[in-house]
Design a protein around this nucleic acid. Structure first.
Length: 405
DNA sequence: CAACGAAGGACCC
DNA sequence: GACCAGGGTCCTTCGGTT
């Protein structure tokens, strides 16, 4: 990270540009954040942790310097063995979907208080924000940012307190939709889940066009559907005919858009997302891929309110992964990213290039994890154990099988 | 010496 | 004027116990 230039007091909150609500440039955002966090306890702490990782990096570099050519050879053989075993286990037969609600908490609050729609909104408290809407993001307001700092970035920011009971209720409705496509879907959090729709696609292949037709209008009408919605009393696999024949929207009078969803994965997911929207008036994004790790990365591609499919063939997977920055991989955070960069690894193909060094410096478990990443291999089964209520550690929770060292 | 559990990191939302 | 979470899981390390 570049060191902060302290140009002191030049920035004032009532600077002309800020009142225009146009958002900030990256420089402005960096300036404001620096000015307000320099010297704080939090900043000191962060610096200390950073130094600790730098030390660990130095240790690793020392190991590499002292390793003999024979050591490198052994490491190379070890990783190549891992790679061939992993390649042999590659499974492209499942269709895995990752679904993520768009700015979930903020979206719920905006839905229920429409006057918030064009304003910068964040959900959370003065000490920490959970999420922000897209207007606020233009000002640099982000999740995991303290509210008071966000206020400096965006003085007009409206901070709505968290209302978890409400979010849980909405999540229950969304999960009802998920269950129609995979009864064993696994929640990763309130607003995120993994589905294996392989079985659904088999059933779907036999459905008529009529059964795959949805009517949709983007106006507020669908909000009112929410109140009528009774999850327990309805069987969604057989949509009620009254709903299906609804061709004009009672609210805005416009002809509702008719969508015939395909029998393929894209069609199924489009249908799923439409159902989520109809029952909650909220949008979500989805990724479709042969394993959960790739699916999650795909979700980001067309966010918000979009979806992206990575085709289930080896060439497409390797191409997809080739120039992917390692930070995009679930399980690789800021620390690991920095460590890898120090070892010359920035993208997934760099992992392969430097595989011997990685094996010398990381544990077997981590090394195997990196090898898996470089091949685009991930977990192809979605388990919803009683024991594991959620997937909170992606690095290890999404392993294809228990590791035997 | 091995198994073990607590503590400390890293990561996710 | 000062305020930078809390809850979850898994790995690694370390130190005292059996």
């Amino acid at each position: 990270m570049a060191d902060f230039t302290s140009d002191g007091f030049c920035l004032n909150d009532n600077k002309a540009g800020l009142s225009q609500m146009e958002g900030h440039s990256k420089e402005d955002i960096a300036k404001i954040l620096t000015k307000n966090s320099e010297g704080s306890k939090f900043y000191q702490n962060k610096k200390q942790r950073h130094q600790a990782t730098e030390q660990r990096i130095a240790q690793k570099k020392k190991i590499l310097e002292e390793a003999s050519p024979a050591d490198y050879n052994d490491a190379l053989r070890k990783t190549d063995k891992m790679l061939s075993n992993l390649e042999a286990s590659r499974d492209l037969s499942h269709t895995i979907v990752h679904v993520d609600m768009d700015m979930f908490y903020a979206a719920v609050e905006m839905r229920d208080a429409p006057h918030l729609k064009d304003k910068p909104v964040a959900v959370g408290g003065n000490s920490m924000l959970s999420t922000s809407n897209y207007v606020a993001r233009k000002f640099g307001v982000r999740a995991a940012q303290p509210g008071f700092l966000a206020k400096k970035l965006c003085p007009n920011l409206i901070i709505v307190p968290c209302n978890f009971p409400k979010y849980r209720a909405v999540a229950a409705i969304v999960r009802g939709v998920f269950a129609e496509y995979d009864p064993n879907y696994a929640s990763a959090s309130l607003d995120e889940a993994y589905l294996d729709i392989t079985e659904h696609l088999k059933v779907r292949a036999d459905r008529t066009e009529e059964e795959r037709t949805l009517w949709r209008c983007d106006c507020e009408y669908w909000r009112s559907l929410d109140a009528d919605w009774k999850p327990s009393a309805t069987q969604e696999t057989e949509p009620t005919s009254s709903e299906n024949n609804q061709e004009t929207c009672p609210e805005c009078g416009r002809v509702a858009e008719s969508i015939v969803t395909g029998t393929d994965a894209e069609g199924a997911v489009l249908e799923l997302r439409t159902k989520v929207f109809r029952r909650t008036a909220l949008t979500c994004s989805a990724g479709i891929a042969p394993n959960s790790k790739l699916a999650k990365i795909c979700t980001d591609r067309n966010k918000p309110n979009g979806q992206y499919q990575l085709p289930p063939n080896k060439e497409a997977v390797l191409e997809f992964v080739k120039d992917l920055p390692v930070r995009k991989i679930p399980g690789i955070g800021a620390t690991t990213e920095e460590t890898l960069r120090a070892l010359g690894v920035q993208t997934c193909s760099d992992i392969h290039k430097h595989r011997a060094s990685l094996a010398l410096v990381f544990s077997d478990l981590s090394t195997e994890y990196f090898m898996r990443v470089s091949l685009g291999i991930g977990c192809t089964t979605i388990s919803n154990d009683e024991e594991r209520k959620s997937i909170s550690n992606e690095r290890y929770a999404l392993l294809p099988s228990p590791i035997t060292v």
